[in-house]
Write a protein that binds this DNA or RNA. Structure first.
Ligand SMILES: [Zn+2]
Ligand SMILES: [Zn+2]
Ligand SMILES: [Zn+2]
Ligand SMILES: [Zn+2]
Lengths: 175, 175
DNA sequence: TTGCTTTTGTTATATCGTTGCATCTATAAC
DNA sequence: GTTATAGATGCAACGATATAACAAAAGCAA
């Protein structure tokens, strides 16, 4: 259990680190990406797919230079920053990855294809993340902003704290 | 009207650019800061006050190097980046300024002294910002995260879009 | 093939933020 | 006043993040 639609208000493999088959998780993400790009008539080139796979190597947001380092390691070539940033831009445009503003990092989106504003949960201890969808909160924010006359175009929500595992680890450690 | 507590769900001079006496606005902010620091036994030194005043020179988030440039202009001395970052760290610790994650910038807080999670409205056209408090949304977010077993420590909410003035400007221009 | 568009390579540079250590300054004890 | 201490600042170098500008290559269609 706990794959796909999960706990109330959340989606995706929320903090499933170790509790799911991530090989399958990654494969499915790449397949979803391929299908979407095919369907949209855009090209998921090798560079872009490589970057997507690196981002999806875990559920932990990665910096552009982290991704670059992996590319260098994996390939004989010696890619440069623009390569990574261009791939990330494409993937963001297609809704396949999200930028984590408070970390200057990037993480795979478990819900590509659906236009959604995502709310990110970021563990400060282990670095893992999960995506949550709370339409009620987003509606409330848009309503409040609208009352002030503000036209909302993009909603960024990032919650920092402790994931279930790290929270219980700390509780067990005597806190 | 429209100074202090304002529209439902919002506080502070929300998008009051041109619609309020900003000289008074700034003076009051500095006075609040002085009172708070006095009360807490921390030192609002000249550097820190200078940086606070520069941040409060408008309601538009400023980058650390923008602040630095103003310092250089204003003073005979030639301050370095750490000076600005240290002052900003102090001001953040005291709740006097907020960091805007999605802009790598800083903006004055109209509600210092009260521990609050703020929601920022950021105009992509003119750069102005306003702080909004939507406790209902924050509660909803915490509830959803809690259901997933996540212990929330900090809530970051940033809404990008058009402020009332820029929205109506665009509407008038024929969009 | 040719011509056109998109993608990638490459170099350099811009922007944002930190480390480490020396020096100064406020404060208070002596 | 002198001295000891902690806090704050000055300063130089560096590290991390992101983009600009232009050349080369690759996909694609006529
Ligand atoms: Zn997974
Ligand atoms: Zn964790
Ligand atoms: Zn003002
Ligand atoms: Zn505006």
């Amino acid at each position: 259990m706990n794959r796909g639609k999960a706990l109330h208000g959340t989606v995706g493999p929320s903090f499933a680190r170790g509790a799911h088959d991530h090989t399958v998780c990654l494969e499915e993400a790449v397949q979803r990406a391929e299908a979407l790009c095919e369907q949209r008539g855009v090209r998921l080139t090798k560079q872009r797919r490589d970057v997507l796979e690196i981002v999806w190597s875990g559920h932990r947001p990665l910096g552009a230079y982290d991704i670059l380092a992996v590319l260098v390691q994996e390939q004989g070539r010696k890619p440069q920053p623009p390569t990574v940033y261009r791939a990330l831009e494409f993937l963001q445009d297609q809704g396949l990855v999200h930028r984590v503003e408070s970390l200057n990092a990037f993480v795979g989106c478990p819900l590509p294809g659906e236009r959604h504003s995502c709310q990110l949960l970021l563990c400060r201890a282990c670095g893992d993340s999960a995506e949550m969808v709370d339409p009620e909160a987003v509606e409330s924010l848009k309503r409040s902003a609208g009352t002030a006359g503000f036209e909302v175009e993009k909603v960024t929500v990032e919650l920092k704290g402790l994931c279930p595992r790290c929270a219980s680890d700390r509780a067990g450690a005597g806190a």
